[in-house]
């Protein structure tokens, strides 16, 4: 989910390197709300809202005060990690009700495939549908078209009468929602426990994944399963006690991303990077 959020944000021309911070704030919010109310769904949407808030801070700095997008994202990461570790300290080691795995009625009984794809918690099922929804949003709806135009050529988009700043806000907020929900998945479905630094660098993997997938939601899905597979293999290898250092495998998502970038620049093809990514829109432009 976080890579999809980052794709929406970057497609509107705003770079948000605060994924790590936004995810962990979402994770903590989700955990605390679930811990106090016992309602995982409420917790899930609270996490999304918290993600929106954190992303809105980025939006204020970047769109209102025209700050540097790279550094603002890093500031959001520092800020978010601090917030989550500060307010999360009393909850370390506590467990909260979350989403439990269940098998889908018919699909779960398919041999092999059912075991892999259809015996998870409800958030995983949502994650099957979300990329499709986001692809439809970006490529089929008029709002998505305007959003992409804002990311590619804000000056031309403004001349065409598109409220570019509003679309960038939309990209930031929608992205923040996805990132916050992604963080909540970690605390509510993946662990059910709170530990400090729960995200453990997954936010950075999300950023790498966006580049790896060339800013396309459909490719991000395959990339996510590839990177997830690498993480799983790394855990298995560690458990089986091989001599391969686990750090080498932990590096793999990033080395793969670099390799893909080098490869695409060799072929001189376009990576699909939004042309106006990281630029500020000046009011008098």
């Amino acid at each position: 989910m976080p890579p999809l959020g980052e794709i929406i944000t970057e497609r509107s021309g705003v770079l948000n390197l605060g994924v790590e911070g936004i995810m962990i704030v979402g994770a903590l919010t989700g955990f605390v709300v679930s811990f106090t109310t016992g309602n995982p769904w409420l917790a899930f949407f609270a996490a999304g809202a918290a993600g929106c808030l954190m992303a809105a801070v980025h939006g204020v700095v970047v769109l209102l005060f025209l700050g540097n997008q790279v550094v603002s994202g890093l500031a959001i990461t520092i800020f978010g990690l601090g917030l989550a570790n500060y307010f999360g300290t009393p909850f370390v080691g506590q467990a909260a009700p979350g989403f439990d795995p269940f098998a889908l009625p018919v699909l779960g009984n398919i041999p092999a495939l059912g075991e892999i794809f259809f015996r998870h918690d409800v958030l995983v099922y949502i994650s099957y549908l979300l990329p499709l929804a986001i692809w439809l949003f970006l490529y089929v709806t008029r709002i998505g078209l305007n959003l992409r135009a804002t990311g590619e050529a804000p000056v031309a988009a403004r001349a065409a009468g598109i409220g570019v700043v509003a679309y960038r806000w939309l990209g930031i907020i929608m992205g923040g929602f996805c990132m916050g929900c992604g963080g909540a998945y970690l605390s509510l479905a993946y662990t059910h426990l709170w530990t400090n630094n729960l995200t453990g660098g997954r936010g950075w993997i999300a950023v790498a994944l966006v580049i790896f997938s060339f800013w396309r939601p459909q490719r991000a899905v395959f990339g996510a399963y590839l990177f997830g597979g690498i993480m799983a293999v790394q855990l298995r290898l560690q458990a089986s006690g091989t001599t391969i250092p686990s750090s080498l495998l932990l590096m793999l998502p990033y080395t793969l991303t670099i390799a893909v970038l080098v490869f695409s620049s060799w072929r001189r093809g376009s990576t699909g990077e939004p042309a106006a990514l990281g630029t500020t829109i000046e009011p008098r432009q």
Partner: peptide, 15 residues
């Protein structure tokens, strides 16, 4: 970290 993050955000906004 919270303070560091806020300092950096304020510096950027102050730009």
């Amino acid at each position: 970290w919270i303070i560091e993050g806020l300092v950096l955000l304020s510096v950027l906004a102050g730009g």
